[in-house]
C-alpha cells in the first residue's frame, strides 16, 4: 500500500509559538521557524494527530483524506 501524505496546515494568525507541537511530535515533523511552527519533514508524518490535539491555539490542522 502506498503511503499517502497528509496536508499540515498551520494558521500563523493563531499560532502563539508555544513549541508544544514541535516538542511532542514523535516523528520530528515540525520545527520552529522564527516565531511560528512550520513543517520541516512532511515525509515522516504518521498522521498521529498529536500536534492537532495538543495545539492550544487551534492553529494546526492535519488534513487527511
Amino acid at each position: 500500500m502506498e503511503k499517502t501524505l497528509p496536508k499540515i496546515e498551520i494558521i500563523e494568525k493563531y499560532c502563539k509559538g508555544c513549541h508544544i507541537c514541535v516538542e511532542f511530535c514523535p516523528k520530528d515533523v515540525l520545527e520552529m521557524k522564527g516565531f511560528y511552527a512550520s513543517v520541516k519533514n512532511l515525509e515522516a508524518c504518521i498522521k498521529c494527530m498529536q500536534c492537532e490535539l495538543r495545539c492550544p491555539d487551534f492553529a494546526i490542522k492535519v488534513i487527511t483524506e
Binding site: G17, C18, H19, I20, L53, P56, D57, F58
Partner: peptide, 13 residues
C-alpha cells in the same frame, strides 16, 4: 480566535 490565553496555556487544549 486567537483566544486570550497565554502561549502554552492548557485551557485551549
Amino acid at each position: 480566535l486567537p483566544h486570550i490565553w497565554c502561549p502554552g496555556c492548557g485551557h485551549g487544549i
